[in-house]
């Protein structure tokens, strides 16, 4: 899955402003190239894929041409199945995410703030973390059955650890110097939490949320591959059973798109609270616009 990247806080580029800046034709070309560059490799790959398919390099029953994948998506969409499967998978990720984040936040705050809680809980949690998460599957199925509960529990476990660790470490590392500013100004505990501790830990927390979400997507695939009657993972298994590779690839692309969109949503929402950050992204932006 995706690695945790720094949050990109750049404001949307104003097209007219950018073009106005480009005073010469070559500058326009440079600008176009810069915008188009990320799409070059995918476009080449798709063209090569189609061309090789037509040349008969791939067995059509194993590697369908891009057109067939598009057809599969369109057909699913027309049946209304697309929305349903995506919605089911999204629902599972969302439920697992909420539970995982809730547990991680409570425990992360406790172990971050209190040395006693840390001594008491952290070693156990670290030990649990050492269990490869998919190894829980048989136990969860035994405990919670093969339906939603076991899937959501598995996803929640995946989401839990990055959020928990990031939060605990961020709270422990809270800037003592800023806490002193709060003390010298007579801030109440509540005001200190609100104006100093929460904003200070937010960047690390958001990084944890993104890492957790990425793992949530990874685990929903595992959960759905193990047995489901709906969802994108089910589509993949269904495609495999019925020999429809276009369906598998279509589901794969849908995973990529929905996963990326949820991450983008998280980044956009979090970005509103992190505009103050002196991150590389923002300073680059400022200097290039100077």
């Amino acid at each position: 899955m995706t690695a945790i990247e720094p949050i990109d806080n750049r404001p949307a580029v104003d097209l007219r402003e950018e073009v106005a800046r480009a005073t010469s034709f070559s500058a326009v070309l440079t600008w176009l190239w810069w915008r188009a560059a990320p799409w070059v490799v995918p476009a080449v790959l798709v063209v090569a894929w189609e061309a090789l398919g037509r040349l008969g390099v791939f067995a059509p029953n194993l590697v369908p041409p891009p057109g067939a994948v598009v057809d599969a998506v369109v057909k699913l969409a027309a049946d209304g199945e697309l929305v349903e499967h995506v919605a089911v998978t999204l629902g599972r990720v969302a439920a697992g995410f909420v539970w995982g984040v809730a547990a991680a936040t409570v425990l992360g705050v406790a172990t971050g703030v209190s040395a006693t809680a840390r001594r008491l809980l952290d070693p156990t949690l670290q030990a649990l973390k050492a269990v490869p998460s998919l190894a829980w599957v048989p136990l969860f199925i035994l405990w919670f059955g093969i339906f939603e509960e076991s899937k959501i529990t598995l996803i929640a476990v995946g989401v839990f650890f990055p959020v928990y660790l990031n939060l605990m470490i961020a709270i422990r590392g809270a800037d003592r110097k800023l806490v002193e500013v709060a003390r010298i100004n007579g801030l109440s505990l509540w005001a200190t939490v609100r104006y100093v501790l929460v904003p200070g830990t937010l960047p690390a927390y958001v990084a944890g949320l993104r890492g957790g979400l990425a793992l949530g997507w990874m685990f929903v695939v595992a959960a759905e591959l193990m047995g489901a009657s709906e969802g994108l993972g089910f589509l993949m298994i269904d495609g495999q059973m019925t020999g429809r590779p276009a369906m598998i690839i279509a589901a794969l692309l849908l995973f990529a798109v929905t996963g990326k969109l949820t991450d983008q949503l998280l980044v956009t929402v979090a970005g509103r609270f992190l505009v103050w950050q002196d991150s590389l992204a923002t300073s680059e932006q400022e200097s290039s616009h100077a």
């Binding site: 110097k177 800023l178 002193e180 500013v181 709060a182 100004n185 007579g186 801030l187 005001a191 104006y195 100093v196 904003p199 200070g200 937010l202 103050w276 950050q277 002196d278």
Partner: peptide
């Protein structure tokens, strides 16, 4: 020791909350 997440005015407000 300004809070990086508060504009100057709000940083100063902390002292008169």
């Amino acid at each position: 020791r300004l809070m990086p997440w508060l504009p100057v005015r709000e940083n100063i407000r902390l002292a008169v909350l």
